[in-house]
């Protein structure tokens, strides 16, 4: 069974800091990383391949440099990759993104399962996975923490809930989004890295996907960002002083005043 894994290149969040004087963002380096949750998706795809055979194909929508992210997943054992990239894709919200990715997935075709990370750490929406499934009209399960059983026709998974977990069975083809708990991603291999260096990754834009400019990018988005601002920081930092007992007494009385305890 072929598995398609959706991968996103994101700015490394640790590199984003706030300049306290100007209250603006400072970026440390411009390193793009693979969205960490997508690595769990890649690993799960590889495990399914090892169990059932077939190929793992990675797909990404992003600027031309997202090619690096796809090469990186190939070094982990992914067989093939496709990049969806077009100037027209810029500014896409989750709706336009899922439309575009669904088109790409359809063009790749022949899959039994699509796996996405539960969310991307830049947007944190967790919306694209379910929306792709809707656009492809296939069943999905979000926040999967364990695949209990998979055959070529059905899939039984555990879905993480706020108060525990659900066990669901879906027919294939289907889509799942996975959480960190599902596995521990492997290391890349040297042969994988060598392949990643030389492999040809096709780039599909609007004409290859057969999608109109009105459906993608900023134009195809239902939502618009109208304002970006830096959040209020806790400016009232107060370092308590004195002996341990004294500090604790101060803390307790302050929390008491604030009706926190």
């Amino acid at each position: 069974m072929n598995v398609i894994v959706c991968v996103k290149q994101v700015p490394e969040t640790t590199g984003v800091k706030i300049n306290k004087d100007t209250n603006t963002l400072i970026r440390e380096g411009t390193k793009g990383i693979i969205n960490p949750f997508d690595m769990y998706a890649v690993e799960e795809g590889l495990r399914i391949k090892e169990k059932l055979g077939g190929e793992v194909i990675a797909i990404s929508m992003g600027p031309p440099q997202a090619d690096e992210a796809l090469r990186e997943v190939i070094s982990y054992g992914v067989d093939d990759a496709v990049l969806l990239s077009d100037l027209a894709f810029a500014g896409a919200d989750t709706l336009a993104t899922s439309r575009t990715l669904a088109k790409g997935v359809k063009k790749v075709g022949g899959f039994g399962l699509i796996i996405c990370g539960k969310q991307a750490i830049d947007g944190d929406t967790a919306q694209v996975g379910p929306a792709i499934a809707e656009k492809l009209d296939i069943p999905y399960v979000a926040f999967v923490r364990k695949i209990r059983d998979i055959s070529n026709h059905t899939l039984v998974v555990e879905r993480m809930m706020d108060d525990g977990y659900d066990v669901l069975e879906v027919t294939l083809p289907a889509l799942i989004t996975v959480v960190k708990e599902i596995n521990e991603p492997r290391m890349p291999s040297l042969r994988g890295k060598m392949k990643a260096k030389s492999v040809d990754i096709p780039v599909w834009g609007i004409s290859e996907l057969g999608i109109s400019e009105e459906e993608v990018g900023l134009k195809g988005s239902a939502t618009q960002v109208i304002k970006i601002f830096t959040p209020q920081r806790h400016g009232n930092r107060e370092m308590l002083e004195g002996s341990v007992e004294k500090q604790v007494d101060q803390l307790v009385s302050r929390l008491d005043d604030m009706k926190m305890i």
Partner: peptide, 21 residues
């Protein structure tokens, strides 16, 4: 977990916007 699981499917089917969290 429930809202973030199925609301995106609803909004995608309605072709409308959804803002998360």
């Amino acid at each position: 977990a429930v809202g973030r699981s199925f609301i995106p499917k609803v909004s995608a089917r309605l072709e409308t916007g959804l803002t998360a969290d």
